[in-house]
Amino acid sequence: MKKLTSIAMMAILLAPALAEAQQHRPGDRPSQSGQRPPSGGPGGPQRPPQPQPGPRPPAPGPSHPGGPGMRPPAPRPPVARPPAPRPPVARPPHRPGAGRPPNFRPIHRPPFQYPRGYSYRRWSIGGLLPVLFLSSSYYYDDWYGLGVGAPPPGYRWVRYGPDLLLVSLRTRRVVDVIYGAFY
């Protein structure tokens, strides 16, 4: 791993020097800014001005952008498209607070046994359900048979007497009520 890292660092450090070496071809003269101006004062030799080379004719070779010293760009691989979205699951939509769904069917079940100290109470959205009812003996998992949608993650359908409540497990708040779900 250390060898690979050191080789990568060397390549990074040498890349600018190699690129500059490729830019200067043999026979090219350095730019005028790097040369001293001819001296014209006494005691110094006077040099005649040297002719500047004109533009070079294009070199024969393949015609592609960048000139003869450059390679054509490599073909790009095809871009992968993201997978198509999954089709929605065919189940009734759940809209909290909308009451009974259109395909709702009340179900006959045995009478509800209230715990000691509790009797029927008509729950409304926003109420806090006692912790006692957030247990598996009060959860209602046959939501498909009633024609209501599956509870969202973190929520459960809870049976309370003849009613079905959708409750948040984290806050114990009643999010939806379906009155008369059981007879």
Rank of each mutant, 00 (worst) to 15 (best):
R56H: 00
I107G: 00
S39P: 07
P152C: 07
P110F: 09
P48W: 08
Q35V: 03
G41Y: 12
P68D: 11
S124W: 01
P88N: 03
G127R: 07
R156Y: 05
P111R: 08
R36M: 13
P72W: 02
F104W: 09
G99V: 06
Y155K: 15
R121Q: 13
P87T: 08
P92N: 09
H94Y: 03
P101V: 00
Y139K: 04
H64Q: 12
Y114N: 01
Q113K: 12
P115I: 03
R56I: 07
W143Q: 05
P88L: 07
G66A: 05
P82T: 09
H64K: 09
R121G: 00
G147A: 03
P82W: 10
P57H: 05
P26Q: 07
G43M: 11
L129C: 11
V158K: 01
G61L: 05
P38L: 05
P62K: 14
G147N: 00
F133E: 07
L128I: 15
S137H: 10
P111C: 08
L146K: 01
M70D: 14
G117D: 06
L128D: 10
P111N: 11
P110S: 14
V148R: 01
Q46F: 10
P88Y: 01
Q46K: 13
G67C: 04
Y120S: 00
P58Q: 05
D28F: 03
R29Q: 08
P72Y: 01
G40C: 11
P93V: 06
G127S: 09
P88F: 08
P45I: 12
R81E: 15
R56Y: 04
W157A: 02
P96M: 03
Y114A: 00
A74S: 12
P30F: 04
D141A: 03
Q46N: 12
S33G: 01
R122P: 02
P26L: 00
A150M: 10
P77A: 09
L146C: 06
P115M: 04
N103T: 05
P77E: 02
S39E: 13
H64W: 08
L134N: 07
Y114P: 04
S135K: 15
S39Q: 10
G126V: 11
Y155I: 12
P51N: 11
G61T: 04
W143Y: 15
R76L: 00
R91D: 07
G99W: 01
R29I: 00
G66I: 05
P37M: 13
P68R: 14
Q46Y: 11
G145V: 02
Y144K: 08
I107D: 07
N103C: 05
D28R: 07
P55F: 05
D28W: 10
Y155A: 14
P72N: 03
P57Q: 13
G66T: 02
G40N: 15
I107S: 11
